[in-house]
């Protein structure tokens, strides 16, 4: 049951993430990306990580993608407004993509034949356990990453402010 469900959902995630790249209309791309994130939420639930699932749901689907959609709607991009890219950019893109593919293939080859991941404790993803791990074992990295987010926020505010002054 769980395995077949996993395959169905994995198939859907791949299909929708491909649609994100191939759809011509940026708004449609964002909508496909939202569906892709939704399938990720289901993956988390299948892994019994309820907290991560719901956070993925709230933060990515509910907040970040709304902002993406918001910006794209204001820009009003469509198929015509996309400029044809120069050959140099296309070549650079192909080279970068190939490098990524080689890295991925190489890293997959060095791994042993993949074994199904078995969680040591099935309840690891529940809120209580996650909170205990974050605030006891990994307190320092957790606080450092919060500092990182904070500095990003301050930077964004600063950038936005500068633009108002010059205008």
């Amino acid at each position: 049951m769980s395995i077949s469900l996993f395959y169905i959902i994995a198939f859907l995630s791949i299909i929708f993430s491909l649609l994100v790249i191939f759809s011509k209309n940026p708004i449609h791309s964002v909508l496909y990306l939202i569906v892709t994130f939704f399938t990720f939420t289901i993956h988390y639930i299948l892994l019994n990580a309820q907290f991560l699932a719901i956070v993925n749901f709230i933060v990515y689907m509910g907040a970040i993608m709304v902002l993406f959609l918001f910006v794209l709607m204001l820009l009003n991009l469509n198929e015509d407004s996309e400029k044809s890219k120069s050959i140099l950019i296309k070549v650079a893109g192909i080279i970068a993509g190939m490098c990524l593919v080689i890295t991925l293939v190489a890293s997959l080859k060095t791994l042993d034949a993949s074994e199904p991941v078995i969680l040591k404790t099935a309840n690891l993803g529940l809120v209580k356990n996650l909170g205990k791990v974050l605030f006891k074992e990994f307190l320092f990295p957790f606080e450092v990453s919060s500092l990182l987010l904070f500095s990003a926020m301050v930077g964004a505010v600063l950038l936005a402010k500068k633009e108002i002054k010059s205008a």
Partner: peptide, 23 residues
């Protein structure tokens, strides 16, 4: 066991109906 967050998530999804329809 994440009941409140579920409600919160659904609330944050509610805006998509309006945004998609409006666009």
């Amino acid at each position: 066991n994440v009941g409140i967050l579920y409600v919160f998530g659904i609330v944050s999804l509610g805006v998509y109906g309006i945004m998609i329809g409006g666009w």
